[in-house]
Each structure stands twice: as structure tokens, then as C-alpha cells.
Amino acid sequence: MAVRTYLQAISDGLREEMRRDERVFVIGEDVGVYGGAFKVTQGFQSEFGPWRVLDSPLAETAIVGACTGASMMGMRPVAEMQFADFVSCAWDHLVTVAAKQHYRAGSPLPFVVRLPSGGGFSGGPFHSQNPESSFAHIPGLKIVCPSTPEDAKGLLVEAIRDPNPVLYFEHKHLYRRIKGEVPEGDWTIPFGEARVHRAGSDLTIVTWGAMVHTADEAAARAAERDGTSVEVLDLRTITPWDRTAVLSSVARTAKLLVLHEDTRTAGFGAEIAATVAEEAFELLDAPILRVAAPDTPVPFSPPLEKAFIPQVDDVLRAIDRLASY
């Protein structure tokens, strides 16, 4: 196994799938000559040529609309939004056309939209968002939020092979910071299977994306401090999401904290909390807690952004509340 960064793992998955399957092509703003704003497709155009690594005009509806049309005709497009935030310009197409196509007309749309998401670098209100929850409300789309290099690769290849439109949220704060061993060769990770990132017995944190690492750090500190044993469950995919894994972890720990970087109200954490309250009320020894960003746009200035994005200390406070309940 090779040690790869999260970003390299995404590149690897995409490159290998393009080598394996000539139907796969890449489209997006500055993905060719420039190699993408974050360099995920660096070197791709020299290997695959300008028609399989297509520099598009600045036009998100055109990019995603083209994915619909090309995938309908048997291709397997992988689009890149320059930042996840700009998918709002293609929202109408994704929701109105792509998400409903198979249900209405029976034609599968096997395409992937890659969305560099998340904050932590003073990107401000338009370069920091985590819009996965709003798409989770749209039946017909699949949503992937990997947190480790291995998952990033395995889930990307799975996404490319999936016959539905898949939104693949790659967290920018993980790109170069997170490294890990990634198996080589042709393998995938199925959607809808959560992963125990850290095993524990006193309480469960359900999270995904960059917050997996925040949760892990908080859990490590809690263990060191007073032996509190926290389980960190990484959902990995939001649509579909692994209810069974969440419910069985809660059955063992009886306490649940849901953590996400997106804003709190109507965030996907609310769905998880509601499901557990419906299906496992008797198993709970404490109220379900949520830690999420406050209901504001993502602020730019460092002290404000730090107050916005859930920090390790915020998670620790919630752990304490649950542990002492």
C-alpha cells in the first residue's frame, strides 16, 4: 500500500478510472491546462488529451447539463465545480432535470460532480460552504463525503461506476493535510456503509468529512483526560446513509452526538437525530446533541470563522455534557 494524501487519492482514483474506461471524461473550469484550481487533474490533459479533459467556459449549468446529456448517451462524465459553492448556479439543472430523470423517464444518468467544499482558510461566504444537506433533501441524487485518502479513492471509483448522478464532496481542508495508506489496484467502497473511525463505548459521535478529524481529536483528548470512551462513526455517504450502523452504535453507547460543519438548522444532523429518536428512543440515556455551525453565512475574518466552524473544544464540551448526563 502506498501513502497518499487525500488529494492524491482523488487524482489516482480518477486517473485509474479514466485509464480503465474510455467513457470517463473530465469537464470543468480550468481543469485542463491549469490542472484544476486545486490541481486534482494536474497532468491529466497531457495524458488524456484536450477532449477528455475539457476546459469548459465559466458556465456551471452548461457543465452539469452537458453531464446529463453525455451520460444519457452512454458516457461517464466527471465534472468539477471550481468550488462546491458554485454548484448553486447549477442547482436548477441538478434538481429539476438530473435528479428526476430516471424516476420520470427511466434513463440512468451515470455522472459525478466533484465539489471542493468546506472552510477553514478565510475563504468567506462563497468559498467555504458545505452544501450537502440541501442536496440530501432532493430524491434522485447520491451524496458522498469522504474523510480519508482510502475512502476518497474507493468512493470516487464507486461514484463513477454508479448509474446515478452523484455529488462527491471533497473537503479542501483535507486535501494536503490528511495522508494515509491507500490500497492499490481496482477496488471500490460501497455507498451506505459507515465506518468506525474510532471504537468506543460511552457515547457515539456521528459525523462525516473534515469533522471526522475534529471528532477524533476531541475523542482522543477526552480519553486522555478522564478515560471517556468515544466512538466516532464516519457516515462516508449521506445519500444513502447507514442507519443500521448508527442505530447499532447507539444501542451500545446509549448516547449520541451528531457533528457537522454545515449550519445547524435543517442540516443533515437533524435527520439523523430524528431517525434515532423515532427508532431508538428507549435505548437512549441522554438527549441527542448536535454540534454544528451557527445559522449564518460563513464569515471571512479569522476570529469569526473560528467561532463559526465547530472546533475540538466545542465537541469536547458536548462530550462532557453527554458523559455527565
Binding site: L58, F83, D85, F86, S88, C89, S122, G124, P125, F126, H127, P297, P299, F300, S301, P303, L304
Partner: peptide, 24 residues
């Protein structure tokens, strides 16, 4: 933007200017 937004995402509305968003 009072720290809520940064760089050129700015304007003095009193001068009849409207602050841009990223989305072009």
C-alpha cells in the same frame, strides 16, 4: 463587510456601489 466577507467583495453603498458576490 465588517469581517463577514473579505477581499474585493466590498463596496461603499453610500457611494452607489454594490458589493459583488463570488458567483459571476
Amino acid at each position: 463587510a465588517r469581517g463577514r466577507d473579505g477581499n474585493v467583495h466590498m463596496a461603499d453603498f453610500r457611494l452607489g456601489l454594490v458589493a459583488m458576490v463570488s458567483h459571476l
